[in-house]
């Protein structure tokens, strides 16, 4: 599904990613952990196509094609989804309108018919129920004035509506209480399937109790310094990142 090879990237001339190698197969869930500032969000942003990052070496293949050559909207249309670490507030753009526009942009790209407002409302309400979300959030502006937890759930809601093939979740669990965490995990699990893959950035092993990963990677100093099974997360929780080779490389 996703194959990253020797990926190097800079921001404002500053080297952040220093040779990432990572392969995520269809049906798999991978977790990425690592210290603050190690480049996790940078990796997510590069994969989603954010401007301002320069890829200086390496490549990323998505379903066998050059992901980095695509505009962000084309990546989304082909099934790549990024749940933002810091979801953006967009005053004046209605949340429901936005999500329907997004869904229809994807459907149009796939040659499918657009969903009308009534069918969409039905669809989104069922997804909101699953996430135990307040439906009043639909008529508000995108993320505007949402609490931290509401923003994170709104990201997962979008993911459920857009049904991506590759979901990249950047700290979607941060700032959630235990109930909210369980609900968000429910949303992530709802989308697991043999033809989908998930890349989860997290600082907390507790998420991995609910969304059990196939692989866990440690990103430090712009590189993956260690990979393992889910037991690696448990080990990290005990020992911290300090023990790991390569963390001093930054």
């Amino acid at each position: 599904m996703l194959k990253i090879e020797n990926l190097h990237a800079t921001v404002d001339g500053k080297q952040i990613l220093r040779g990432i190698d990572l392969e995520v197969g269809a049906g798999e869930v991978h977790a990425i952990m690592g210290p603050n500032g190690s480049g996790k969000s940078t990796l997510a942003a590069v994969l989603a196509g954010r401007e301002g990052y320069e890829v200086t070496a390496g490549r990323a293949l998505y379903q066998g094609q050059d992901l980095l050559a695509l505009a962000p909207e084309d990546r989304a249309r082909q099934g790549v989804f990024l749940a933002f670490q810091y979801p953006v507030e967009i005053p004046g753009v209605g949340n429901a309108y936005f999500m329907r526009a997004a869904l229809n942009a994807l459907r149009k790209a796939r040659g499918e018919e657009e969903v009308d407002a009534i069918d969409f409302l039905e669809l989104i309400k069922s997804k909101m129920q699953l996430l135990e979300m307040n439906q009043a959030l639909l008529s508000r502006s995108v993320n505007e004035g949402f609490s931290g937890g509401e923003k994170k759930r709104n990201e997962v809601l979008q993911m459920l509506v857009l049904e991506p093939k590759l979901a990249i979740l950047d700290e979607t669990d941060s700032g959630l209480d235990i109930d909210a965490l369980r609900i968000v995990a429910r949303g992530v699990n709802a989308l697991r399937g043999p033809d989908r893959a998930t890349l989860m950035v997290t600082h907390y092993q507790r998420l991995l109790d609910y969304v059990v990963p196939d692989r866990v990677h440690v990103l430090a100093g712009g590189k993956i310094v260690r990979s393992g099974g889910r037991e690696l997360a448990l080990e990290l929780e005990k020992t911290g990142y300090g023990q790991l080779a390569g963390t001093g490389a930054r």
Partner: peptide, 27 residues
Amino acid sequence: LDEDALFYLRARGLDRDVARALLTRAF
């Protein structure tokens, strides 16, 4: 136009021009 908002909309599949128009209309 807010670059973060533009990227957010594009990352959800909206064309750059559509995203720009949407943000401008919101303004």
